[in-house]
């Protein structure tokens, strides 16, 4: 029996300006399938400010508002308050920002939004650099990556900091629901979005969205890279519901070099650096498993 595993309705139109094999457009397509037409979306400066198209075109069949780089959180708080005062509680309000607009520039607005407890969904699509402006490093860029501001040459080196753990920052606010997702697992992403629509209060998502242009990878590999990021433990898929961790995918570990060497941004890494990175991801994974185990304790109750 042939069956579609994700909703059939398309709320995103073709003809958008996304690059070939763009992970961010895949993420938006899946998110809109889950959220439905009664959704308002606010987008700061990021790839998605360009993707809908040049004026007067737009690929969105729902209202979308462009906002400044640092205020996605404040913007969706305002939209929610305005809708509530008009009695429109059934509209989903979504903030859709890139990783730079979330982990670096927009983090105070995000923090304020969660603290105030608005009933909104904040989705950060993570392509691990400022891709729209020309591949500059962001707080979300992983160790070892080439970007235009961390060039690899004789005198300069690759990105030397580890990827910022945004989920832990967000979870520290004790919000009702936060989750990571990946475009490689659309069913999982859609299931989580449907689930979070039932939960009142602020919700947060970090979606892994490969970027062939910035990662110097082949466009047809986008989904494969997202899948490999999960299996190599570089980007684990988990959710935190009322403070309780749950790892949604615990696949067999695959060698990290298989994932790194498909991307031009990691091609320069010598073997010992790959091993160092692998050890770091393994450590993070173990810590995550422990967190999952610890937070299952019933005596803790719900954090929020």
């Amino acid at each position: 029996m042939a069956k579609l595993t994700i909703p059939k309705e398309e709320i995103m139109s073709p003809g958008h300006m996304g690059c070939q094999g763009c992970g961010a457009t895949m993420a938006m397509r899946y998110a809109l399938k889950a959220l439905g037409k009664k959704t308002m979306i606010s987008v700061p400066a990021c790839c998605w400010a360009i993707i809908p198209g040049a004026w007067p075109n737009t690929c969105m069949q729902i209202p979308m508002q462009y906002t400044a780089f640092e205020v996605t959180g404040a913007s969706i708080s305002g939209i929610r308050a305005a809708l509530d005062s008009q009695g429109m509680q059934d509209v989903n309000v979504v903030g859709w920002a890139g990783d730079g607009g979330t982990v670096d520039i927009g983090i105070q607005a995000l923090s304020g939004m969660i603290e105030r407890g608005h009933n909104v969904i904040y989705i950060c699509y993570d392509n691990e650099a400022y891709m729209n402006t020309g591949i500059q490093r962001s707080g979300s860029t992983p160790y070892g990556a080439w970007t235009t501001t961390t060039p690899v040459g004789t005198t300069e080196y690759w990105e030397e900091g580890q990827k910022k753990n945004l989920m832990e920052i967000v979870v520290a606010h004790r919000l009702p629901y936060a989750a990571t997702a990946s475009v490689a697992y659309p069913e999982d992403f859609i299931k989580k979005l449907n689930k979070c629509l039932e939960i009142p209060g602020p919700k947060f998502f970090q979606v892994y969205a490969p970027c062939p242009t910035g990662w110097k990878s082949s466009p047809e590999l986008s989904m494969d890279l997202a899948r490999k990021a999960v299996t190599t433990r570089a980007f684990p898929i988990y959710e935190v519901e009322h403070g309780k961790y749950k790892i949604n995918r615990k696949p067999e570990k695959t060698p990290l070099s298989e994932y790194l060497m498909l991307q031009g941004r990691f091609k320069h890494l010598p073997e010992k650096e790959v091993e160092f990175l692998d050890a770091h991801y393994e450590k993070e994974w173990k810590a995550l498993l422990k967190l999952e185990e610890m937070t299952q304790d019933e005596s803790l109750g719900n954090f929020m």
Binding site: P14, G15, P56, N57, T58, Q61
Partner: peptide
């Protein structure tokens, strides 16, 4: 503010 209200189907990206 300018409003984008033309569906992007007007842009034939198949040319890429």
């Amino acid at each position: 503010t300018p409003i984008n209200n033309v569906d992007s189907r007007a842009v034939k990206t198949g040319a890429w």
